[in-house]
């Protein structure tokens, strides 16, 4: 995969440098920087409240950093220039649950990904319909193209939203906690779809999660976020007691249990022997970025 990536020019699709974000006087992100190359599968991992959503919002131009730069496809993002992200970046926000009375069929939601930002009504055409169908097929959601999207399960809605983000043929797909609240099999299905997109269409995937384990087999790299700061590298480089302890600002242990990575606080944190640590609950450490 990385060989393919280096073939695509200088290689970097996205670069964040020295990103600071302050919200209502509080420091949310400090000196966050990393780069993503085409086709790379990057996990944005960290406990709740660490700043993952904020990082994605900075990339999208929804949140202006107080300092630092975002370079997308070789062009720096201006303070106000958010339109550039339009076709380059596909986005699946977190906790998006569509209510049953939303008058949208699955294919309507996906079609909004083509030109939902335009005025007027779209001219229905065969090409348009087929593009929607083939995109749904790519994420394994063509079985319910005509269902009302609000009546689908959470996992099915996630696939539809991925198709919506995908149909404008972005180079970068940002997904904010798409696996939260999914059962293990649905989560694995989504991960498989994303890994395939990254591999076969060279779409860079940046996916946030508070539990890294479902992503472990497919992640090329990890951006681990804790308390507003980030450590970047391969899982061997990042998931280490010394690296994460420094990030959290207190001692944490990185344990490998039954092939899963579990991060637990040392002295003054959660009890390492708590049942959550072993049964695959999300990181039982810091409830909400308390460090």
């Amino acid at each position: 995969m990385t060989e393919n990536a280096s073939r695509a020019g200088s290689g970097e699709l996205l670069r964040l440098d020295g990103i600071d974000v302050r919200l209502s006087g509080r420091e949310i992100l400090r000196d966050v920087g990393f780069a993503i190359r085409p086709g790379e599968f990057t996990g944005l991992i960290g406990p709740n409240g660490a700043g993952k959503t904020t990082i994605l919002r900075v990339i999208l131009g929804l949140q202006a950093p107080s300092s630092g730069t975002v370079i997308l496809a070789g062009e720096p993002r201006g303070k106000s220039g958010r339109s550039r992200a339009g076709s380059l970046v596909g986005y699946v926000p977190q906790k998006l649950l569509i209510e049953p009375d939303m008058p949208l069929r699955v294919r309507d939601v996906v079609a909004l990904g083509i030109d939902g930002n335009r005025l007027g009504i779209p001219f229905p055409s065969r090409a348009r319909r087929e593009l929607v169908t083939s995109t749904l097929r790519a994420v394994g959601a063509d079985g319910y193209a005509d269902a009302r999207v609000g009546e689908l399960s959470g996992g099915e809605q996630q696939r539809v939203l991925i198709a919506h983000a995908l149909i404008s043929q972005p180079k970068l797909l940002l997904l904010d906690e798409p696996l939260a609240n999914l059962d293990i099999r649905s989560a694995q299905g989504i991960v498989a779809v994303l890994a395939k997109l990254a591999r076969e269409q060279q779409i860079a995937v940046l996916i946030s999660a508070h539990d890294m384990n479902p992503l472990a087999p497919v992640m090329d790299r990890i951006v681990y976020v804790a308390a507003g700061r980030a450590a970047v590298g391969s899982s061997e480089e990042v998931l280490r007691t010394d690296v994460l302890s420094k990030l959290y600002g207190q001692h944490v242990d990185v344990l490998r249990v039954h092939g899963r990575v579990v991060i637990v606080a040392g002295e003054d944190g959660a009890d390492p022997a708590s049942p959550g640590a072993l049964t695959g609950q999300p990181d039982p450490v810091f409830g909400s970025g308390a460090a």
């Binding site: 099915e156 649905s186 989560a187 087999p217």
Partner: peptide, 27 residues
């Protein structure tokens, strides 16, 4: 039942294991 039917159709994908030919099973 419609959503559930579709879900079972897509499920072999999940079992095939991440990174494998998961989503082709659904088509």
């Amino acid at each position: 039942g419609r959503g559930q039917v579709a879900q079972t159709a897509a499920d072999p994908a999940g079992q095939a294991g991440p990174g494998e030919r998961a989503c082709s099973a659904a088509s």
